[in-house]
């Protein structure tokens, strides 16, 4: 499968951020009171995600490994500010409806997760498609939740009132508990579909990487040195993380690992913790 299309498929279905990775739950639960809000939130996140993925990917050799998090945040925050001002100028109603959740896109874990686990290790074009796939996956997820909640809670879909539901509004679905209940049901439906697909003999490719999931959802992702275990491992021969961490390893193998552009990179990423230790020791000595 083409790598770019694979990225889209990955974001929309295989590792859908809302229904599979369960990332970005805060906006997912808070703003999906209507379908339009869901789409608005999803698309603005997508724009930020695509742009920040591209920027971070382009700068990946310039950003020192040890300050990558602040650097990512600066990039993401710049794009979020741009999106925020544009939205305030051209879509004031949506801006009002989304409120605090627009600036909070800065700390959306999908965006940071993609930057950390994909964009910082891959070329610009695949990173862009990764951003598009993940962003659209998020948008689809939010829109689905929004539609269901709007129909049940307000008797309308995409702000168009459904006459048959005029007197049948269930206010709970417009409130926070309704968001949890709808999300739970949609995840259940998704799991049923997945299981059906597996039974039909179309098993979904297993999610690769450490543990069961993506590095983005892994609490060790910042400390983890086994960075070669990204999702497109199928293109590469299996690499022993211990070997990757050492710059002395076979030159060819190092080149094949996703994040290691040159042996310097590998050295830095492989010995983060020892650098930090040195720093502390140094300070104590002074």
């Amino acid at each position: 499968m083409n790598r770019n299309i694979e990225r889209l498929y990955n974001g929309l279905w295989k590792e859908n951020p809302t229904f599979v990775l369960m990332l970005g739950m805060c906006p997912t639960l808070a703003v999906t009171t209507s379908a339009i809000n869901g789409i608005g939130m999803g698309l603005s996140t997508t724009v930020v995600l695509v742009l920040s993925n591209m920027m971070i990917s382009a700068l990946r050799n310039l950003i020192p490994d040890r300050v990558r998090m602040p650097a990512f945040i600066v990039v993401v925050a710049s794009f979020v500010t741009m999106v925020q001002f544009l939205m305030q100028g051209f879509l004031p109603t949506l801006y009002e409806a989304l409120g605090i959740y627009i600036p909070l896109i800065v700390v959306n874990c999908i965006i940071l997760g993609r930057a950390e686990s994909y964009a910082s290790k891959n070329p610009v074009i695949p990173s862009m498609f990764d951003g598009i796939g993940m962003g659209l996956g998020f948008t689809v997820g939010l829109t689905f939740i929004g539609v269901v909640r709007e129909i049940l809670g307000a008797g309308s879909a995409f702000n168009v009132a459904i006459p048959a539901l005029d007197n049948y509004h269930i206010a709970l679905f417009g409130l926070a508990p309704g968001a949890f209940i709808v999300l739970g049901f949609l995840v259940a439906v998704m799991n049923v579909i997945r299981r059906k697909m597996e039974e039909k003999g179309k098993p979904l490719p297993a999610v690769q990487g450490c543990l069961a999931g993506d590095c983005a959802g892994c609490s060790l992702s910042t400390a983890c040195t086994g960075k070669s275990l990204t999702h497109h491992v199928d293109e590469l021969p299996p690499v022993n993380p211990a070997e990757v961490a050492k710059p002395t390893a076979n030159e060819m193998e190092v080149k094949q690992t996703a994040n290691a552009k040159n042996s310097e990179d590998v050295e830095k990423s492989g010995s983060d913790s020892s650098y930090a230790d040195d720093d502390i020791v140094g300070k104590e000595d002074k």
Binding site: I170, A171, L172, F173, L175, P177
Partner: peptide, 8 residues
């Protein structure tokens, strides 16, 4: 309680 919240 579901009814109380939904149909106050």
């Amino acid at each position: 309680v579901f009814l109380l919240i939904s149909f106050a």
